[in-house]
Structures are given as C-alpha cells and as structure tokens.
C-alpha cells in the first residue's frame, strides 16, 4: 500500500492537462483517434501534423519525450507485422534495394505504423496525465453502464492485490527450488493459476459480504461527481478539432 495509489503509467504533475476533468480528456482522445484513423494514408504530411499536435500536448503536460518514447515500445509486435506487409500484399510491385515489394503493402505498412503509433501515443498521454480513479469517474460520466464501471473499478482496485498474490506464489515456488523450464512444468504453473482463481473468487465473496454489511444495495454512491465547465471542454477538444481541420485538408488537398 505504500507505493502510492496510482498505476505505473501515471506521472504525477500539476500541468494544465493534468487539471482537465477526466471525461473531457477521454472524449478528446477518442475523437482524436477516430479522426486519425479516418485520414487518408496518402496524406503523409497530415500524420506529421498529428504528431506535432501530440508533441504540443506532451509539452503542455510536461511529459518528457524519453518517457513517451519508452512507452511507445508496447507496439513493437505491430511493427513486426507491418514490416511483413510489403512482402505478402498483392498488386503492383516495386524494386527497393533489390527486393520486390508490393506498393499497396508499403502503403498498408505505413498506414498501420502511423495510425497505430499515433493511437498508442495518445493513449499513453492520457494514462500519464490521468489517475486511475479519475479514468473510472470519466468513464462513468461518459455514460458507460454503471455495472460495467463498477466491475472495472473492482478490477483496478484489486488488480494489484491479485498480482501480488501471484508474486507471492512465485516466490513460494522458487524458494522450494522450483524453476519452470519447459512444457513439463506447466502442471505446477496451472495449479498456481487455479489456486489464484479460487483465492480471487473467494476474495470477491468476502468483499461482497463486507459491502453488504456496509449497506451496499447494487449501486455505488457517487460522492465526487466530476463536472466540466465550457472552457474546460473547449480546451480539451482543441486537440481533436485541430486534428479534424488537418484531416479535412488531407481529404481535399
């Protein structure tokens, strides 16, 4: 509990981006990603403009570039996939450095790379400037079904507890000389997973009883209703609006 009640991606700060209400940020990121995805892939300059916009946001949020770039590593698997596309796609071929590549495949690879990277960067910025609890409040404000938000909130609240339980089981296994080296050891690991499920489920039952004894009747009380003023909405939606202008230019030019 001493580690602070924030997830690993959160970066504490007091920037204007941190201060925005969470649901405006969620809406802005979603709108931004939709705009990016619907941009034609031939308008390469538009993606550079989007990257510039995100860099401005990162600057305003005082998120250092190194932090952002390190978080972008999560998309390495897609990069590998995108690198394959020029070789397997059909259509017109072009010779690059002695390799016969498909033109459409090159465009497809660029498309996945550019849009995927921008999407990941926007999500990383959101996660870096918004606390977990705020994300949940924001989702609730955006009219996600309350039961779904409750489930998500229990997941994030107990995610660390369950992960820690798993870590303790690993330490217990290792301190008894167990080391998983191959398929033959899957039985032990699966038994750990089974035990983890039973412990999680039983913890859920205990949590439910504790909640009932404190007067839970199916819905959580909302004590910190988040609201956003018009100015805050304007500030949050500046990013997708600017992106939308770029997108329109991308379609017309």
């Amino acid at each position: 509990m001493g580690a602070g009640h924030a997830h690993r991606l959160y970066r504490h700060g007091h920037s204007p981006v941190h201060a925005l209400p969470p649901h405006t940020k969620l809406a802005a990121v979603l709108a931004f990603v939709v705009v990016v995805v619907s941009t034609p892939r031939e308008a390469m300059w538009a993606f550079a403009a989007y990257a510039g916009l995100l860099a401005l946001v990162a600057y305003a949020a005082r998120v250092p570039p190194g932090f952002l770039l390190r978080r972008l590593l999560i998309e390495v698997p897609f990069v590998a996939f995108a690198a394959l596309l020029p070789f397997v796609a059909r259509g017109e071929r072009v010779d690059v450095l002695g390799l016969s590549l498909s033109v459409d495949g090159l465009w497809g690879a660029w498309n996945v790379l550019a849009k995927g990277t921008l999407g990941v960067a926007a999500s990383v910025l959101l996660a870096a400037t918004t606390e977990l609890r705020e994300v949940l409040l924001g989702l609730q404000r955006l009219r996600l079904p309350p039961l779904l938000v409750q489930i998500a909130s229990f997941m994030v609240r107990y995610g660390d507890v369950v992960t820690d339980e798993m870590r303790r089981m690993r330490i217990a296994r290792e301190s008894r000389g167990f080391e998983a080296r191959g398929v033959r050891h899957w039985g032990v690991l699966a038994k750990s997973a089974g035990a983890l499920f039973i412990r999680s489920y039983e913890r859920g039952e205990r949590v439910h009883l504790a909640m009932v004894s404190r007067g839970y009747a199916g819905s959580m009380p909302v004590i910190d209703e988040v609201t956003a003023s018009r100015a805050q909405w304007c500030r949050a939606l500046a990013l997708p609006s600017a992106a939308f202008v770029v997108c329109l230019l991308g379609w017309t030019v």
Binding site: I151, A152, T163, A180, R181, A193, F197, E205
Partner: peptide, 22 residues
Amino acid sequence: RTAPLAGLVAAFVFAAQMLNFP
C-alpha cells in the same frame, strides 16, 4: 454479487495473462 465477483475475476484474468509458461 456481480460487481465484486466479476471485478475480481477480471483482475484474475488480468494477472493470469502475466503468468509466463515457458
């Protein structure tokens, strides 16, 4: 009991996805 139980099971799924099987 949906919210706490489904939430805890979701946390379990999340944790189980981190369990590496060599």
